[in-house]
Design a protein around this nucleic acid. Structure first.
Lengths: 115, 115
DNA sequence: GACTTTTTTGGCTATTTGGCTAAATTTGCA
DNA sequence: TGCAAATTTAGCCAAATAGCCAAAAAAGTC
């Protein structure tokens, strides 16, 4: 008798969700999310500009950007010794809006609990 | 002389991105993403049903659900000894679609590199 | 080639996360 | 009350993540 197929034992389906989760993981960090948001609003920025905006060590910022790039969220372009990063897919912006709506809905619900 | 304000030194802005990243973090795990997707497609499910679908230990599934709930992505309803979880905000579905588009765009780009 | 600027990488430590087992809760029912 | 089923919580360990400093690469200029 065959045991019931589950998410964890179905490799192709599982691989799909692992890939999707990988993309989300790249976004799921305050600094990276901030940078993505900046790129969405202000267009391409070089590492040094982003470093200035973030206020962390440049090596840290570089690592964050490498991860975003690895997951296909940003693309890099060389200009002299500088490297400009830009957002790769526009839908990420709506994404952020939905996120905002989750957040404000959470806050509203918590407000309701008080009254 | 005032030093330039940065993301990391501007508490209110930073707190906002930390909150948003928290929501993303809750989604950024294969099992949790799978469960959210199941809830989006098939409506409310109890912990035991989700446990069956996922194929992990029920305590693990319970923890995942607790995190999703904490971040406001799902809501729980008691029915007898069972607890049904449901998706709280519809926009998360579009969210998943965008994610898919990032993924397929990544794959297409990798294909192009071969030709 | 030597020197400068920008970015990435290696190495290390501290923290967080994810999973399991086992124990505790909660709810329903005899 | 006492037992069974569903769910959550606690405790523990292994693996992944994030940060910094220092060193290496990459590109431009003299």
């Amino acid at each position: 008798m065959k045991k019931t197929e589950s998410f964890l034992t179905a490799p192709p389906q599982r691989a799909k969700y692992e890939a999707l989760a990988g993309i989300l993981k790249a976004l799921a960090h305050p600094t990276r999310l901030f940078m993505v948001d900046q790129l969405a609003r202000g267009g391409p920025r070089c590492v040094c500009e982003l470093t200035e905006m973030v206020g962390a060590d440049i090596s840290t910022v570089s690592r964050h950007l490498a991860l975003l790039k690895k997951e296909g969220l940003v693309a890099a372009t060389k200009k002299g010794t500088m490297i400009y990063y830009q957002l790769r897919l526009p839908c990420v912006v709506n994404f952020l809006e939905c996120l905002h709506s989750v957040l404000s809905s959470n806050i509203q619900d918590r407000l309701k609990l008080l009254s």
